Computed example of a mutant assay.
Amino acid sequence: MTYLYFPGCSLKGTGRAYEESLLAVFRALRIPLVELADWNCCGATTYMSIDEHQSCALAARNLALAEQQSPTADGTTQLIAPCSACYLVLLKAQRCLASAGSLSQEILRALQEGGHRYQGRVRIRHPLDVLANDVGLKEIARHVRQPLRGLRVACYYGCQIVRPFASFDHPHYPTTMDELVRTLGAEPVDWPLKSHCCGGSLTGTIPEVGLRLNYLLLHEAQRRGADVVITACPLCQFNLEAYQDQIRRRYPALAPMPVLYFTQLMGLAMGLPARELGLQRLMVPMEKLAVASVRG
Rank of each mutant, 00 (worst) to 15 (best):
R125F: 09
I140N: 10
A269E: 06
A292P: 02
T175A: 11
D190M: 09
Q68K: 14
D129R: 13
L202R: 05
G115A: 07
L217P: 06
D227E: 05
S167N: 15
P285N: 10
A253K: 09
R163T: 02
Y156H: 13
A93D: 02
C41F: 08
E179Y: 14
L11A: 06
M283L: 15
L235Q: 05
L202H: 09
P207F: 09
R117L: 09
T45G: 10
A255G: 09
R61I: 03
A98V: 03
Q119V: 12
A37T: 04
G296K: 13
R249G: 14
L11T: 14
Y87R: 06
Y118R: 01
N214G: 14
F26L: 02
Y261V: 13
R275K: 12
V294F: 08
L268R: 04
C42W: 05
A60E: 08
D227T: 03
K288I: 08
T203D: 02
V259N: 14
A93R: 03
R212K: 12
G278P: 00
I230Q: 08
I230V: 15
R95Q: 14
G114L: 01
C155T: 10
V229Y: 13
K92R: 13
P273S: 05
D51H: 01
H196P: 10
V294R: 11
P252L: 06
P252V: 04
D134S: 11
A24D: 08
S84D: 09
A59P: 10
A290Q: 15
L11N: 11
F26W: 05
L23P: 03
R142N: 07
P256D: 08
E139F: 12
R275S: 15
V89R: 00
H219P: 01
H143S: 12
P71E: 00
S195P: 04
I161M: 05
A132V: 12
G199F: 05
A100M: 02
Q280N: 11
S167L: 14
A93T: 07
L128G: 08
R275G: 11
V162F: 00
F168I: 01
C83K: 10
R61G: 00
A93I: 00
E208H: 07
A166G: 10
Y47S: 13
A221V: 06
D74F: 00
V144H: 01
V130D: 00
R223T: 09
N62F: 05
E106R: 15
Q69Y: 00
Q54Y: 11
D245V: 12
G43Q: 07
A98Q: 10
L29E: 04
P32E: 01
S49Y: 13
L202N: 11
A253D: 10
A17T: 07
H196L: 14
D227N: 10
P188W: 01
N214H: 07
A232P: 00
A73Q: 09
A66D: 01
P188D: 03
V153N: 05
Y3V: 03
V291Y: 06
S55K: 07
L151N: 02
Y215C: 00
E19T: 01
R27P: 03
C86N: 01
P207I: 05
Q54E: 10
L254H: 12
P188T: 01
R295W: 13
E220H: 14
A17Q: 13
P32D: 09
A274F: 06
S201A: 15
L268I: 07
T175I: 06
A166V: 05
C198I: 02
L103D: 06
Q264P: 11
G267F: 04
T46P: 01
A37Y: 04
P147E: 06
